[in-house]
Nucleic acid binder design. Structure first.
Lengths: 185, 185
DNA sequence: AGAGCATTGTACTGATTGGTACATATGATA
DNA sequence: TATCATATGTACCAATCAGTACAATGCTCT
């Protein structure tokens, strides 16, 4: 009856989309099964703890992506200004101009916050720290760098909410543009 | 068997809290029944269309509150600066320093967006328009007033997400303070 | 007091929920 | 080809889901 042998890692991307679109409660196993193409047997084989473990796996994957694509260049890139621009480019693409929800943000807003608090705090904390490092490398005052980077992460989250609410991708792009000039050396 | 005769309006406030805390999908009728103290009989008597109608009623109530407490003073108050400060005070209290989620924002982020799109767009659109009116009354350029008010509403939403994610009410208060100086005449 | 509408609790429905059990099938190794 | 861990589909479970039906009660007005 089994058709093809799948890998656990193949399930992560569709899982992320399902949780983004329907939220933790809204993503039923039926939806998850359809999105991943995996039956319950496979799903519970890969994720014995069910939905919670699936979300944790998705969060770990998200962390890895942000780490290599955004945090690492911000922290260690030789050109701080270039790393910041890269971050904004990647952010624009990643959230599809605000049409794609931030899973971590939506988990933080829901009653799922406590269950995934560690990953949620890590996500935002790492982003702020990494951006702060780049801003300091630009030669900025550490206190200013801190408040600027908090403000940037806050604006990105706000822009996702607002541009989705108004169904207007331009609003997200404008927010990114404003950050570009505000964070330029 | 019926104990006390309730009014539909008494149910709105607890309904709002339940939807805020558990989201649209997560708020089951069992939870709703417990939170409101109303059995299914009463709930479907007051809201024949079920959860959707409950949310619409809550959104209408929210609109009314914002209209009289925030939008109206911003649009028509004699002192624009005072109205803006009042808005920030009320916002701080309403969202309990970011510990209380914005229901409209969370609906906008979830897959419920399309179902309630009209109320969602109205909420943010009205807020931006009203704040813009006050900023223009301060003597500001209309284009600047527009971008400032969009930015303010965006920052409030972002601050809710971030301060909840980090479990840190101070972050929300700081965001409000920054808006206070940015929006001062 | 009595009529009539508003409100309420309970019992019920059929569908769906997350999760388990297990027999079967696959693919690599030997 | 025989072995064996890894996948997989299906049937099943108790619990819960949203929603309906309805008889019994409360309240108001006369």
């Amino acid at each position: 009856m089994a058709r093809l042998v799948a890998e656990r890692s193949d399930a992560i991307a569709p899982l992320a989309e399902v949780f983004r679109e329907y939220g933790y409660e809204g993503a039923s196993l039926a939806l998850i099964s359809k999105a991943t193409g995996l039956g319950k047997g496979s799903l519970y084989h890969f994720f014995p703890n069910g939905k919670e473990e699936m979300v944790q796996a998705v969060l770990a994957d998200i962390h890895q992506w942000f780490e290599s694509s955004i945090y690492s260049p911000l922290r260690d890139g030789d050109d701080a200004d270039e790393a910041i621009n890269l971050m904004l480019d990647e952010t624009l693409a990643y959230f599809k101009s605000g049409q794609r929800v931030c899973l971590v943000g939506s988990l933080a807003v829901g009653n799922t916050r406590d269950r995934f608090s560690k990953a949620i705090r890590g996500y935002f904390g790492n982003w702020i720290e990494a951006l702060k490092a780049a801003l300091i490398r630009q030669g900025r005052d550490p206190a200013l760098a801190q408040s600027l980077s908090e403000d940037a992460v806050l604006s990105i989250q706000g822009a996702i909410v607002l541009s989705r609410a108004m169904d207007d991708p331009i609003r997200f792009q404008r927010a990114i543009d404003q950050l570009r000039s505000k964070l330029a050396a």
